[in-house]
């Protein structure tokens, strides 16, 4: 039985710099795993490798029996991995609902002919896409529903943009969600809410989640397992309690380079 998600000996170099160095990671279905490490440790690079934005120089990535290396990002999304971005990247001029409907892209199949002639199958599909998009937005309570549906995304507040980005990723009907610093820039109340939300994503919607986080309260609050990396290499792994006592981790955060302490 192949693992749900597994990366083996991933290596990615940029010129002389090795951003990711023989990185191994295994995730079981239904887990919430957080990825932490000092700035520049290679966390986002790992996301980019997994989602196909970069191709690794060495190593392999398996997801539910598929080898992801060499696939393009849209194929990987089609297989069931969706992500958000560290700097929220929405389609700012599309409406809130349209943003999420774009997320449903891989779950539809209509093309130019469908759009022009609009047979019943096309209309059913559009209705389904819309309905599911609305359902994803409903997950966030009233924050993104009602009149918000037809607002362009640039009208949203920062926290709502983060939520919309997650809704859009959810709409791809992925199995594995990669969230890149979901609470960055949020105030404590919003952060608390996001922490609960990540838990609900798994409990209510059945997503497996890998997320990058700097806020240790979030990491502590929700992760089943914490993976710590530094210089592109895994230096510790375990529950929050285990990891927070690990001397490699303390060294990475506090020792050697005072500058990089998070």
């Amino acid at each position: 039985m192949a693992a749900f998600f597994e990366s083996k000996e991933l290596v990615k170099k940029f010129g002389g710099l090795t951003a990711v160095n023989r990185f191994d990671l295994k995730i079981e279905e239904g887990e919430i795993v957080s990825l932490i490490g000092p700035n520049g440790a290679g966390k986002t690079t790992i996301f980019n490798l997994v989602t196909g934005f970069y191709s690794p120089d060495e190593g392999a990535i398996y997801f539910r029996g598929h080898d992801l290396v060499g696939m393009s990002p849209h194929q990987i999304t089609g297989l069931g991995i969706a992500r958000t971005f560290q700097t929220v990247r929405l389609f700012l001029n599309m409406t809130v609902l349209e943003n999420v409907m774009v997320g449903q892209h891989t779950r539809g199949s209509s093309g130019v002919f469908g759009a022009i002639f609009r047979p019943p199958s096309y209309r059913a599909e559009e209705a389904r896409i819309r309905e599911r998009a609305e359902a994803q937005l409903g997950f966030f309570g009233t924050r993104l529903t009602g009149y918000r549906h037809d607002q362009p995304a640039f009208m949203l507040s920062y926290a709502n943009r983060r939520r919309l980005e997650i809704a859009r990723a959810m709409a791809t009907e992925a199995k594995l969600l990669l969230l890149d610093e979901p609470t960055a820039g949020m105030n404590p109340r919003e952060t608390q809410e996001m922490t609960e939300l990540i838990g609900r994503l798994r409990d209510e919607r059945g997503f497996t989640i890998l997320f990058i986080e700097h806020d240790m309260r979030v990491v502590k609050g929700v992760s089943d397992r914490v993976v710590v990396i530094d210089y592109g290499r895994q230096i510790a792994e375990g529950t929050y309690a285990e990891v927070s006592q690990d001397e490699h981790v303390l060294e990475a955060y506090l020792g050697r380079k005072t500058k990089d302490a998070a």
């Binding site: 934005f53 990002p73 999304t77 969706a82 990247r89 929405l90 349209e98 791809t172």
Partner: peptide
């Protein structure tokens, strides 16, 4: 539209 707005993100949405 998605592609015009942000090609990379559109790609990561499965387009």
């Amino acid at each position: 539209v998605a592609m015009r707005e942000d090609e990379q993100v559109a790609e990561s949405m499965g387009i």
